[in-house]
Nucleic acid binder design. Structure first.
Lengths: 192, 192
DNA sequence: TGAATAGTACGTACTAGTTAGTCCTAATTA
DNA sequence: TAATTAGGACTAACTAGTACGTACTATTCA
């Protein structure tokens, strides 16, 4: 692994757990066991590292989570949504619900004061929502989901509920709000 | 207004807009035009101020927002829920959706690293959810809402959706996710 | 040769919290 | 009534530590 990759990996973990502002360059270089000059050789500032970390994690999340579940054409739309929720629930269970959503956390911390972060997060949320919408549309066509739901409006609700449920599960330190809530939403979608 | 009240007012605004960690005692005393020693005369630490601010805002939110709408027995349950959403939407419109939910922000920032904050926020969310649940129960009894909804499960969904929608509205800098989403949820509840 | 690395010392700004003491009012006491 | 005492509200100046970023020299390695 190159030093640059090390920085990105260590920084992601620290930013995810402690937030962007609370993560210091000094701590990153200490954990990554590299020199400060090497850090500034690879990144011109702390902000540019933060953006690089975010871009990388968005790319990986889209490829490894969203596309693998919501866009998996080996599954029916209902199973796609279920496998997506299962993956999310599994992740937060493994973390004991402690750290929340990596993207929601950054959105909460930085949206109001850093335009670059906000723009990227907004574009990512929109991309995510569109893929939920597509899954809903296909599910309605295949009559797995009730046609009384407007796919666009309900994809917004699903995404908002997911972010909120992860936040509340983190606050309660219990998976229930996320796990039961997502099951109830699927039940609702199926109901005629 | 006493200096103590000034500190609480100034600190609330700064913490709400910039987060707890990004709000410095130095900046608080400068904006409140008081000395640092006076600050430490009234509060034994920055944390104890933060807790005092949170307790105060929870108390006011319960009395002035939640009880005035969700528990307002001059309104039918449906109107209670509508007036609650209207109040929330109005608040975020006035702030151009910039700052998010005062409680959600703190939950996101502090739940994982400060037990005192987390405990208070969890208790508050639970109290809030219970009042939504009560409103749903009454609405189902009065046949304003469909009886196919489990009040407890759906109150969890409503609260989670609200927090998530506020966060996404902040990220988009658009009221749509919050405003359209809440209208859609009400429509859903009414549907037979 | 030139990209990548280490080390270290800085500079400037900011951080939470402490110290030792002043000012003023109100109650107590001789 | 006049002196004394107690204590709440307040202040300026300070400490010790952390932050991001820069400067500069000196290696390592492809």
């Amino acid at each position: 692994m190159t030093n640059k990759e090390k920085i990105l990996r260590v920084a992601y973990k620290m930013i995810y757990r402690n937030g962007y502002e609370q993560t210091s360059v000094d701590e990153i270089i200490s954990k990554a066991k590299i020199s400060k000059s090497n850090f500034y050789y690879h990144f011109k500032s702390k902000e540019s590292l933060g953006i690089a970390v975010l871009d990388l994690r968005i790319e990986r999340y889209v490829n490894e989570v969203i596309n693998e579940t919501l866009m998996n054409n080996k599954l029916t739309p209902l199973r796609r949504l279920e496998s997506f929720y299962n993956k999310v629930v599994k992740f937060h269970k493994e973390n004991e619900c402690k750290y929340g959503c990596p993207f929601g956390n950054l959105a909460s911390e930085l949206s109001s004061k850093n335009h670059k972060f906000r723009k990227r997060l907004a574009a990512f949320f929109e991309q995510w929502r569109e893929k939920i919408e597509l899954c809903l549309k296909h599910g309605i066509e295949k009559k797995e989901f009730s046609d009384k739901f407007n796919p666009k409006l309900f994809s917004e609700i699903i995404l908002a509920h997911l972010e909120g449920a992860i936040l509340i599960s983190k606050t309660y330190k219990q998976i229930n709000p996320l796990e039961k809530g997502s099951k109830e939403i699927i039940k609702l979608l199926k109901a005629a």
